[in-house]
């Protein structure tokens, strides 16, 4: 009977192991976001992903590199290109934005593919060009 504790221990270990695998699995996959020509062009144009926008800074939304069905959700929430957005909170996970007077939570994977322009950077860039 005592020996039968083993299946239980194995089960629990299996559960924990699988949970661990599941938790570990996703972020690795996320890092394989394709770096295509378009992305390099955007970076070259001085834009940066919203996900890398510093907290509390105003930024101007420039380009949405996201799926069609998501675009519409973003548009109807007021995240149209040219809109000012501010990162209210960025705790590593989903981000909290201020957009047109409302607060919008945005998944990080999405924020990686939304390109913004920081006004200060623009000001620095101008005399150079």
């Amino acid at each position: 009977m005592i020996i039968l504790v083993w299946p239980v221990v194995l089960l629990i270990a299996g559960v924990l192991l699988t949970m661990g695998i599941v938790v570990r699995m996703r972020p690795v996959k996320d890092q394989h976001a394709p770096v295509d020509e378009h992305t390099t062009a955007l970076l070259a144009a001085g834009l940066l992903p919203l996900a890398e926008c510093p907290q509390g800074r105003d930024a101007c939304l420039r380009c949405l590199q996201v799926d069609r069905c998501v675009i519409h959700r973003l548009l109807e929430l007021g995240l149209t290109p040219g809109t000012r957005v501010r990162v209210v909170q960025d705790a590593g996970g989903p981000m909290l934005l201020a957009v047109r007077g409302s607060r919008v939570a945005l998944g990080r994977d999405l924020a990686e593919r939304m390109w913004v322009e920081l006004p200060e950077l623009e000001a620095i860039d101008l005399p150079l060009s």
Binding site: D67, V70, R73, L74, S102, R103, L110
Partner: peptide, 14 residues
């Protein structure tokens, strides 16, 4: 998933 990599887009009401 209806939207692949749809991610979270949600308003946080006051």
């Amino acid at each position: 998933s209806t939207a692949p990599a749809a991610g979270l887009v949600m308003e946080l009401p006051p």
